[in-house]
Design a binder for these strands. Structure first.
Length: 705
DNA sequence: CCAGACCCTG
DNA sequence: CAGGGTCTGG
């Protein structure tokens, strides 16, 4: 009735709304396993399916889920597993018709099959999300509309299928547009490019003042791609930032807007001029195929779901714009980097499985070599020395030799871009504006990092930050590269996180058979996957949980509130999201546990002492049953909740501690502790004694030093 | 049935 | 402090 449970009035539906819903140990085998593996079968299918196994995410937070939730996870897993199996068999059959039509639609593009597959994968992603997510919503509603909900979902699913078909068509249209743009822009920009190269040689990007800002941005990209020093510098990181983080998603968390204003302004200007249409298409496509449509058209009345809808809506927008940006970027990369001697992409592309992989590798190598040498000439003229190492690299690349354990090759430029973006996000030490090592970073104060900027609500972080926020990203980066393109796309032990995503991307870029279109699609796919990852595992960017500063603050809050509601927690932790809510609640559970254990211990000790002394407990009671600042009990509590002893323990907490101590003492003395539930009464008393947390705790940062 | 508290263990 | 199991009120 008024058990402590009641104090968490609003927490239940929100805690796990975005928590992993699947177990990491039960990842289905890659659907492609055991099948005749076409040489050109993109790992996209297994990739995206693995990505969709949220269990691959670290379980640290997910582990906070209680038993029932875990059971729910298992159930979801079973259903998703079934879905995956269907997806590989029946799903593909069904997809064949569409694929046929798609092939017919784009006969001249020999990679249309890939396109179809890719879009199928996206559809599967959506389908799987639809299958799994509404279950959470169902649970949240306590089964009230369970029966009706199923029919509703079926309807929704059908509705969605139609929309997905429509989305598919739009995607095709988009692809058409892209191909056209390839050819057209290639021709249109040849002259412009020559001019730019000259400018670069003459001394840099300042010369671009007569160019549109858009062109400057393109300059950044190519510089970053071709110049190792630039890569080490920061251009690529800027690109990574702008590529995925600056987006309409930010309107969801308006606080972020200010911080990103700079980059955004730059981006918005540079974007969407001649490619506006493409982007519109991309956005439209994603809008139509909204990933979790059922969620934001469902129970609006629930507060918890409302947040989910907002999030989903925001993600939808983010996905749309991110994909559009990737397309935009990749497209521009292609068109700009295309050498005059090389035919337009649409023409030069070789069919999948064709032995032209190596050939294409050479071609691409030469393609980039020209630009690279140009760039190097410029640099060497400045530095006045030759760089033999670079020559060697160039030779390797142009010979098509597999760039064993090196930076992603230039064979697949977009993927190389992606990989480098990821790489940069993984190798944090290369980021100039961030601490030199992960350890340092983690030892620093992420709480302050976040809350020092009111704008920095962890909504959708810059991609490069992912590597910082989730150590697992970096941890697996190297090993994964070694593994390269294993059949499972570099999966290890069913684990799946952003790091694995990178590995897969890296693996792709090592495959010489991959054509540019393939890489283009994979780039988009990778982007989508990143977004999906972030949707499913927001804790990936919440620094694998809460920081020591969060802990410190929570402990101090415990002086005031032993049973804070999740609303209270949200109020006092601005950088709070659903994933850390459960952890924070667990913390307070642990705090209470420690508190009551101490109370019981000292109460029992007092009882013992009273009994051994003279059998007259009343005499010693006043002396023993107090928690003055001079007592051992106080010292222990202070040590636990206020280790640094900088904070003045509120008097009220001492009073409450005394109440608790005496209640325990009384219960033990009267033998009520034989009742297995004897503590509940005490809990009830204590939970009514919460006082409001001072406003100082609302301020960002640690409340004290 | 489920979320959350409690309990125990590492 | 985290994780897993159990219990319980709603």
């Amino acid at each position: 009735m008024d058990s402590p449970t009641d104090l968490f009035e609003d927490s239940s539906p929100q805690i796990h709304a975005f928590a992993p819903s699947l177990s990491s140990t039960d990842l289905p085998a890659p659907p492609s396993a055991g099948r005749p593996s076409p040489a050109f079968r993109p790992p996209g299918f297994p990739l995206i399916h693995h990505l969709l196994q949220p269990g691959g995410a670290p379980r640290r937070i997910g582990g906070q889920l209680n038993t029932n939730l875990r059971q729910q996870e298992d159930r979801n897993l079973e259903e998703v597993r079934g879905e995956v199996e269907q997806g590989t068999d029946g799903g593909e059959e069904g997809g064949m018709e569409r694929e046929d039509s798609l092939m017919g639609f784009k006969k001249r593009h020999s990679d249309a099959a890939l396109a179809a597959e890719w879009s199928q994968d996206v559809l599967k992603v959506k389908r799987m999300k639809l299958e799994s997510r509404p279950k959470g919503g169902e649970a949240e509603e306590g089964g009230r509309r369970r029966e009706g909900g199923r029919e509703g979902r079926r309807r929704e699913r059908e509705e969605l299928k139609e929309q997905l078909d429509e989305a598919r068509e739009r995607l095709q249209a988009l692809q058409e547009k892209v191909w056209r743009a390839f050819g057209e822009k290639h021709m249109a920009e040849e002259e412009e490019k020559k001019g730019r190269c000259k400018n670069r040689e003459d001394g840099g990007e300042d010369a671009g003042l007569m160019e549109e800002e858009e062109e400057e941005e393109e300059e950044d990209i190519t510089e970053g791609m071709y110049d190792e020093e630039d890569i080490e510098g920061g251009d690529m990181e800027k690109e990574a930032f702008s590529l995925l983080s600056v987006s309409p998603f930010d309107s969801f968390h308006k606080q972020r807007e200010e911080r990103q204003k700079d980059g955004e302004g730059r981006m918005e200007k540079g974007r969407g001029l001649h490619l506006e249409g493409v982007m519109e298409e991309a956005g439209l496509w994603l809008d139509c195929g909204g990933l979790v449509r059922g969620d934001w058209h469902g129970g609006v009345e629930e507060e918890g779901e409302e947040g989910g809808q907002k999030f989903a809506q925001a993600l939808k927008v983010e996905l749309g714009s991110a994909v559009a940006r990737v397309i935009d970027r990749v497209l521009r990369l292609y068109t700009e980097m295309t050498d005059p001697s090389s035919p337009p992409a649409a023409i030069s592309f070789l069919p999948p499985g064709n032995d032209g992989g190596r050939e294409r590798g050479v071609w691409m190598g030469l393609l980039t070599q020209g630009r690279r040498e140009e760039k190097m000439r410029g640099n060497e003229e400045k530095t006045g020395r030759q760089d033999g190492e670079r020559e060697k690299q160039l030779q390797n690349r142009s010979s098509g030799a597999p760039p064993h354990r090196s930076e992603p090759s230039d064979l697949s430029m977009p993927l190389a871009v992606q990989s480098k973006l990821f790489s940069r996000s993984l190798h944090h030490h290369q980021l100039p504006h961030l601490p030199p090592s992960r350890k340092d970073y983690l030892n620093s104060d992420p709480f302050l990092e976040f809350s020092a900027h009111p704008s920095s609500h962890p909504s959708f972080p810059p991609l490069p930050l992912l590597g910082h926020l989730d150590p697992s990203l970096a941890r697996h980066a190297h090993g994964g590269r070694e593994r390269g393109m294993r059949g499972d796309g570099g999966m290890r032990g069913g684990g799946m996180d952003g790091g694995e995503l990178y590995l897969t991307a890296g693996g792709i870029s090592f495959c010489p058979q991959w054509g540019r279109e393939m890489c283009f699609f994979m780039s988009v796919l990778v982007c989508v996957c990143v977004c999906v990852c972030l949707l499913n595992w927001p804790h990936v960017y919440t620094q694998e949980g809460l920081s020591p500063c969060h802990l410190k603050k929570a402990k101090l809050m415990f002086f005031y509130a032993r049973y804070p509601s999740s609303n209270t927690l949200k109020t006092y932790f601005p950088d709070f999201n659903r994933c850390v809510t459960s952890q924070m609640i667990k913390w307070f559970s642990n705090f209470r546990e420690f508190f009551y254990i101490q109370m019981e211990r000292f109460a029992r000790q007092a009882v013992r002492e009273a009994l051994t002394r003279d059998g007259a407990p009343r005499v010693s009671r006043e002396g023993q049953l107090r928690v003055g600042r001079d007592t051992e009990l106080y010292r222990i509590l202070n040590m636990h909740y206020n280790k640094s002893n900088v904070y003045q323990v509120p008097e009220r907490f001492i009073e409450i501690s005394e109440v608790a101590l005496r209640e325990f003492y009384s219960a033990i003395w009267t033998g009520r502790d034989s009742d297995p539930c004897w503590k509940k009464g005490i809990y009830k008393i204590i939970c009514k004694m919460d006082s409001p947390v001072p406003d100082a705790f609302r301020l960002p940062g640690c409340p004290i030093g």
